[in-house]
Design a protein around this nucleic acid. Structure first.
Length: 832
RNA sequence: GCCCGAAUGGCGGAACUGGUAGACGCAAGGGACUUAAAAUCCCUCGGUCUUAUGGCUGUGCGAGUUCGAUUCUCGCUUCGGGCACCA
């Protein structure tokens, strides 16, 4: 029987993709519920901000997620795979002003368009669970969580120095300041004093740190970044009495072992003690001018550049409680009020900053920790010595090893009631107040008589004010809208004012993954039963740019929701995959560089399947992906070749029965073996590390084997059964990547049953075994010859064969054989 | 400055636990088909020497361990990422 494979037909992806998308939608193929005997699997990709249209980064992220979802379904899991919209945020306001539309209108239009785009990609979401965070039905529950946190003391208001972005007209959290600039618009951030609401994330600092150890399924890199961000330091907090005064200066140090080397004190310009130090101070004006200048410099420069160390003596002294030394107190520009106590004991001999400062102002440098073999006495030091060593000049502690001395000195401070062990974190509380319109209102009320009052839960949601014409742009912040903020006190009924700040949009994304478990639940933020069924997320996928921001906040919220009784897990995301960027011509795609690839164009020209296939094939997910238009064509060619083959061979495939593995000719055995090897390879690639690129190349190899066996002289030896087995397997293996394509071809060769109802193929280890092996023969570690041998050969005969091999003999050249190394099924190395 | 990570053909990338470097794809070159082109199919494809069998060389650089190193150790170089007065 001869079959013609048409050489010219290109498969009609447009019709095929439309057909299957319609089917999946109308039949709600990917809808899930908890009533299933199957084990649950929750795969989630970071939901997008509805900026207008999807970009290649989304395509990549969601293609990866969809492969995981479809693969796990084939493996028999009950897969939750939802999608939604992180739909509050600044761009909506800017766009609304620009286009004279309303942020809500702009946002919902974008959502409609982008949902359409995601459907065009054939992503297998349960669309019935879709959420949009700007919907009052979503943020109502966020407000309720806020209130419950407030009741637990996890929310508080304070006036403090905040990060202000002038271009965004709002405050930013510490995590949102990237190298001194705004995470969203790159504008330089300035310092301002403002009142705002804070989440007490620092209450969870220790647990957030400890539980990092539970995140074995996260990239080490992300765990390390979080660990550094939390920045735990242990040391001594200790009081230094101010000379001729009742006041004390409290310091924190991680080097209590150097406490005998303190030669001065540095305090932050904002330090509260400064006020009393200035009283009756002859140099009051000079000091005031200095601190004012430093504070304003700090505000302008933010934390971009390291400025030179600068300070001024206050004329006051304090007493080192350990040795009675009288030491001068300086105001210094490098001391941060927001870390530790805002005051530092300065040990210039053992701290580089203090060293530079001491050099500049000619202050004493007193070495007290002498590293092994070093001589720090008297000689001019070039830099601070930070190594451990033996204490000298340290009273009763002289001669002690510095690590031991740390604890002894802490113990001593405690016994004298002047200090104790202390832990300090770099992590600060999360400032969530934003002075913008398009965000979730903070449900608090300020009463003239009763003070701050929470909005009663039954009055939620506090919704954003609608405009007279909601089509029109009016993005005035809430503090400019009296109709919004004028209200009455829930306690006394008197005149009161609503909080006019809205919440940081990172609050919405800190719990959306839990809401997906019960997205329409109307009794409380989460249906506990559903949440405990689905959570934690088994596999979370998104960009590494959220390594700290979103992922830290979500971990915090998970712990808070647990403590509020909504969740019974400690960590939200068991496994995390951080995918690389999509780049072109060596750099990130951007409008300014003019190297943007629009997914729409690709879908129109090649279809969703090809687009997905290339974005999975070109690189492993965690690496950056270099976009290559020619590479896309290669993937398209690959799909076309399969399509033509299956069409041409459909009769044979349909006629194929089950493979009888003990009754195969050599061509059949070769294809049968390759099929099972491919199943094994693809399965392992996906299971181990989601390396779809190598999984796809394995399927390409299988197809190459299939088509070459068919084109050459062995053509007539191939029975229908092995062809059918190869094609059936190939289609299921490829289905997670190119679902429409495989569904269509499957339907042409199977009268009944959709590919979605199939099981993942299982490989047969026997069938996958090679019956011949290539053994490498080395002489002195260099490859000299190769042998084809039966797979079951034993080491002794292998060795014998190697010693008889002509090529090997040439290189042995009659020399004495020292040693022969035989590696099973791999090689023989003859050492002469 | 400190802490991570990476470096393999013209390109994207592969290589199990130390055991055939370059799978798969792209590009390039040659051929078949065609009046021609496109499409499709076949062949070649790290460098170098050689008529060829084949030899030598080759995974950023330099050492080391080993019968054997892309893989392990040490020291560099370059690039990328994170943190950056955190006391």
């Amino acid at each position: 029987m001869s079959v013609n494979v048409s050489q010219e037909v290109l498969y009609d992806f447009k019709t095929i993709e439309q057909k299957w998308q319609d089917k999946w939608l109308s039949q709600a193929t990917y809808k899930v519920s908890t009533d299933s005997d199957k084990e649950k699997y929750y795969v989630l990709e970071m939901f997008p901000y509805p900026s207008g249209r999807i970009h290649m980064g989304h395509v990549r992220n969601y293609s990866i997620g969809d492969v995981v979802a479809r693969y796990k379904r084939f493996r028999g899991f009950n897969v939750l795979h939802p999608m939604g919209w992180d739909s509050f945020g600044l761009p909506a306001e800017n766009a609304a002003i620009k286009n004279n539309t309303h942020p809500a209108r702009w946002t919902y239009d974008n959502i409609d368009y982008m949902r359409h785009q995601l459907r065009q990609l054939g992503l297998s979401y349960d669309w019935e669970r879709e959420v949009a965070t700007c919907n009052p039905k979503y943020y109502k529950w966020e407000q309720q969580i806020f209130l419950e946190m407030y009741e637990k003391g996890l929310v508080y208001q304070k006036a403090t120095t905040v990060n202000w972005c002038e271009s965004c007209h709002t405050v930013l959290a510490n995590e949102q300041v990237i190298e001194g600039t705004c995470w969203r618009c790159d504008e330089l951030v300035e310092a301002r004093n403002m009142t705002g609401w804070f989440f007490k994330i620092t209450d969870y600092a220790e647990e957030l740190l400890d539980d990092l150890d539970k995140l074995g399924g996260w990239p080490d890199k992300v765990v390390t970044m979080q660990r550094n961000w939390i920045g735990k330091s242990t040391g001594l907090q200790c009081d230094f009495p101010v000379a001729d005064s009742d006041e004390k200066l409290s310091i924190f140090t991680t080097r209590p072992d150097t406490i005998f080397g303190v030669t001065f004190m540095s305090i932050a310009p904002e330090h509260p003690l400064l006020k009393s130090l200035l009283k009756d101070n002859p140099r009051e004006q000079e000091i005031r001018d200095f601190t004012a200048r430093i504070i304003s410099e700090k505000q302008q420069q933010s934390n971009v550049d390291l400025t030179e160390k600068e300070g001024i003596a206050t004329g006051h002294y304090c007493i080192n409680p350990f040795n009675g030394d009288k030491i001068p107190i300086f105001v210094a520009n490098f001391v941060l009020m927001s870390y530790g106590t805002g005051a530092v004991m300065a040990v210039p001999a053992h701290d580089q900053r203090d060293f530079e400062f001491a050099k500049k102002y000619n202050l004493a440098i007193k070495p007290v920790v002498i590293p092994d073999g070093a001589d720090l006495s008297k000689t001019d030091m070039e830099e601070a010595s930070v190594l451990p060593g033996i204490l000298s000049d340290s009273g009763a502690f002289t001669g002690t090893e510095s690590e031991t001395a740390k604890q002894q000195i802490i113990d001593f401070a405690r016994s004298q009631n002047i200090g104790d062990a202390h832990i300090t974190y770099r992590l600060r509380d999360w400032g969530i107040s934003r002075q913008r319109y398009w965000g979730a209102p903070i449900p608090m009320i300020q009463c003239e008589t009763c003070g701050v009052q929470p909005v009663p839960v039954d009055q939620l949601p506090v919704t954003l004010p609608e405009d007279r014409e909601s089509q029109k742009s009016d993005c005035a912040p809430l503090h400019q809208r009296s109709a919004f903020y004028e209200t009455s006190c829930p306690k006394c009924g008197g005149k009161a004012k609503r909080e006019t700040d809205t919440m940081d949009t990172f609050v919405e994304s800190s719990w959306y993954f839990a809401r997906y478990a019960s997205p329409r639940f109307t009794d409380s933020p989460l249906d506990k039963e559903k949440a405990s069924h689905w959570l934690p997320v088994d596999q979370y996928i998104g960009g590494v740019e959220h390594a700290i921001l979103h992922l830290l906040y979500s971990r915090f919220f998970t712990k808070v929701l647990r403590d509020l009784g909504y969740l019974d897990i400690d960590e939200p995301f068991t496994n995390l995959l951080t995918q690389g960027m999509v780049i072109k011509d060596g750099s990130k795609m951007s409008k300014s560089k003019g190297n943007v690839v629009d997914p729409n164009d690709l879908i129109t020209e090649y279809g969703a399947d090809t687009t997905r296939l290339f974005s999975l094939f070109a690189a492993p997910p965690e690496k950056d992906l270099e976009w290559n238009a020619k590479g896309v064509e290669g993937c398209y060619r690959f799909l076309n070749r399969i399509f033509r083959f299956v069409q041409a061979y459909s009769e044979k495939i349909i006629a194929g029965t089950n493979v009888e593995s003990n009754n195969l000719n050599s061509a059949e055995r070769e294809l049968h073996r390759k099929t099972h090897q491919t199943i094994k390879k693809v399965t392992n690639n996906i299971e181990q590390n989601f390396h779809f690129n190598t999984a796809i190349s394995a399927v390409m190899e299988l197809f190459n084997t299939l088509s070459s066996l068919n084109s050459d002289k062995k053509k007539d030896e191939l029975g229908n059964a092995v062809i059918r087995e190869a094609v059936d397997s190939l289609l299921v293996l490829l289905c997670p990547m190119v679902p429409h394509f495989c569904a269509e071809l499957w339907s042409t060769i199977h009268a009944e049953g959709a590919i979605d109802d199939e099981h993942w193929p299982q490989w047969d280890e026997e069938a996958a075994k090679e019956d011949e092996l290539t053994i490498v023969i080395q002489v002195r570690g260099k490859v000299r010859s190769r042998l084809q041998v039966p797979a079951d050969i034993d080491d002794a005969s292998l060795e014998a064969m190697a010693l008889k091999d002509e090529n090997a003999l040439k290189f042995i050249d009659g020399k004495a054989i020292k040693k022969i190394i035989v590696v099973k099924k791999k090689l023989v190395n003859i050492v002469v």
